[in-house]
């Protein structure tokens, strides 16, 4: 097992280095473009050359790449071109905000999706199954911007229960988190629920479920102990992919509620060519993607002993 972890972590580092290289080549491949972004459209060629020499951009690209890697590892992400401040000052704050949103959504979504998926799958074809299936297909097919408007209309303008923006101007406020979490959960849970349902339905037809039934075990015990773990193997991968989506795919929702998150920062940076912010965001997104997949693979072998002992 420890050997497997070692190998996976090694793979993870390798992938990170390769993706970081691509990211670096795309953003900092041409030093003049960087100088142009930093100094603005009216800077003259001499100024650009001076800037390039001053900041070491005349060195070979691979030297610059490893220099950059070294700085990132030591915690220096560079300065934002737009905000004229170290990226560190803005970036971690935004990442934290999205972390909170994504974390809460993830917990709510996984609990809802697994519960509904299991309830639907354990009695395939029943009324219970059909209601859940139709509901999850419907919510999944409504895009976030539409459900954001719809939910805001109900809870903000209709009932007046919740605030319409989530800018957290007065410090962290749980109430402001409710609407974004609802929108994301409604959109995202369908995939996991459908997957869980299919997997659960398949597991329930297995002979070992019959064995458990004919052993005289209570139905609850059969579902929780015999079916659930086997049924989770397939949706587990999808669940891990959702984390990825929760980090970088929530731009629309963040924008809709004015939430100061990572997605909004990345979008802003990309539109205004804020190179060092783009790089930091890119690295973070890749890290989360690779990390969750590694966790996913390791968890998969835990869930499925047939793989673990091969």
């Amino acid at each position: 097992m420890s050997q497997l972890i070692l190998r996976r972590v090694g793979m993870m580092i390798l992938i990170m280095l390769v993706v970081a290289l691509l990211l670096f080549l795309m953003n900092e491949g041409d030093p003049r473009l960087i100088a142009r972004s930093v100094l603005g459209p009216y800077a003259q060629d001499q100024q650009l050359d001076a800037w390039i020499a001053q900041h070491g951009y005349d060195r070979p690209i691979m030297v610059r790449y490893f220099d950059w890697i070294g700085r990132v590892l030591s915690g220096d992400l560079g300065d934002s071109i737009i905000y004229k401040r170290p990226v560190n000052e803005i970036f971690w704050d935004r990442l934290g905000n999205t972390g909170i949103l994504a974390g809460v959504t993830f917990v709510v979504m996984v609990v809802v999706a697994l519960t509904l998926g299991v309830l639907a799958g354990m009695k395939e074809g029943s009324a219970q199954d059909r209601v859940i299936s139709v509901f999850s297909i419907t919510t999944t097919s409504i895009p976030e911007y539409a459900s954001a408007v719809l939910l805001a209309w109900i809870f903000v303008f209709g009932l007046g229960w919740l605030p319409g923006t989530s800018a957290m101007t007065g410090g962290f406020n749980v109430v402001e988190l409710i609407l974004p979490v609802m929108v994301l959960t409604l959109y995202g849970f369908g995939y996991v629920a459908r997957m869980t349902r299919a997997s659960m339905a398949e597991v329930m037809t297995n002979h070992y479920i019959r064995t458990a039934m004919l052993k005289g075990l209570p139905y609850r015990h059969i579902i929780m102990k015999h079916a659930l773990r086997n049924a989770l193997i397939a949706p587990f991968t999808v669940i891990m992919l959702q984390i990825n989506w929760l980090l970088s795919g929530v731009v629309v929702t963040e924008f809709a509620f004015g939430y100061k998150g990572f997605g909004a920062l990345l979008l802003e940076a990309a539109l205004r060519r804020d190179i060092f912010v783009i790089e930091a965001c890119g690295l973070a997104a890749v890290f989360v993607a690779v990390f969750t997949q590694t966790i996913g693979d390791l968890g998969y072998t835990y869930l499925n002993p047939r793989i673990r002992f091969k």
Binding site: N206, H207, Y208, R210, T211, A212, M213, L214, K215, G216, L217, P218, K225, H226, R229, N230, I233, L303, N304, P305, R306
Partner: peptide, 24 residues
Amino acid sequence: VRRVRGKDIAMIYQEPMAALNPSL
């Protein structure tokens, strides 16, 4: 019926591999 199953009447199956839960 549940109390009878597995306690008073037990069953042995054709495919032992399929009859046992792979993850327990």
